[in-house]
Amino acid sequence: MAMEMLKGLGTTLKEFGKKPTTVSYPEEKRELPPRFRGRHVLHRYENGLERCIGCFLCAGACPADAIYIEAEENSDDNHISPGERYARIYDVNLLRCIFCGYCEQACPTGAITLENIYELASTHPEDLVYHKEQLLEPVGSATRGSLEAWAAPAPAETTTPLPGRQGFFDGLPATAASVGQADLPTETEILVPGSETINTSNPSDRADARTVEAAEAGDLRDAGDAGDADDAGEMVDGQEER
């Protein structure tokens, strides 16, 4: 009894001198990751023109239908954007928005990015429909926003190959997230050039195949295509024999 109590107190003493893990939020804010997706920001060029050209691609890509745009033609005396059109109205319903970043990916001019602005709550929901004046960065500033963070190569922990047989899928580095398949044994046998036939039921073979180089993956893809062609030829032959 006494020993157990001392043990518990020992745990308390052990943690006594350590720094607390708590982020005391309103006073002290945590460091956000560079790819954090918060509120949208509309950007400008260095000469003050808006990047948005009113092409509706972001509104089309939005899975929640949160973006509402009305475009208008640029004229000589009202030149807003370098393109033919500009967005006269650009509303983002932040309550509908799920902060997926598809608008940022769809934008051809890098006009809209999701920044690390996250203090967004409101007592009136209509206040959370942000209009163009609120979203647009002020005149004189021309930033790229989080596009730089997305252009940089992804952190290593997000690009670990999936625990399958090859680290590449369609010639691209395969991750568990991008492919959506894990270490599933398949019925087909994949021939890797310069190696033996991989037995999918043997875990050690799978571990070997995980370390396929990028160049080999290209070869593998070609070989796979060739194999498909051969299969098709065999099928045709078989039909002829019948």
Binding site: Y25, P26, K29, R30, L94, L95, C97, I98, F99, C100, Y118, E119, L120, A121, S122, T123, H124, P125, L128
Partner: peptide, 27 residues
């Protein structure tokens, strides 16, 4: 849910991070 109960504070996000929720609670 404002069609069912009167809502005092709306917090956007999908899901909101804990900071966003704490901001809503402060509000």
């Amino acid at each position: 849910v404002d069609k069912v109960v009167p809502v005092d504070v709306y917090v956007p996000g999908c899901p909101p991070t804990p900071d966003m929720l704490l901001y809503g609670i402060n509000l």
